[in-house]
């Protein structure tokens, strides 16, 4: 039987689809029975989603102008 502690270390292999059939089954069985690990998995997925939803800084105007100048020169050259 997979312990909760072990599950927290296997969560990435699980989410990456890098588990053999038997291990995957053990993982899913544990999740089905343990509400704490279910919550852990839910929070892990939320964390990954939140990271993916971070927006990058917009390009500063002066940098953009400078790059446009480079593009024009490149285009002429």
């Amino acid at each position: 039987m997979l312990t909760c502690k072990e599950l927290t270390e296997l969560v990435t292999d699980y989410l990456e689809g890098r588990m053999g059939f038997a291990d995957r089954l053990r993982f899913q069985l544990h999740i089905g029975m343990c509400k704490h690990c279910r919550e852990f998995l839910r929070e892990r997925k939320l964390t990954i989603g939140a990271v993916g939803a971070l927006s990058p800084e917009p390009i500063p105007t002066e940098v953009r102008d400078e790059l446009m100048e480079k593009f024009r020169n490149w285009n002429r050259g």
Partner: peptide, 22 residues
Amino acid sequence: FRANGGWAEPPHRWEDDTPEAL
């Protein structure tokens, strides 16, 4: 975790259901 590998201090439930809400 407890010695048997079970949660001693399990995760608290996060209220938010979406990354955006979080």
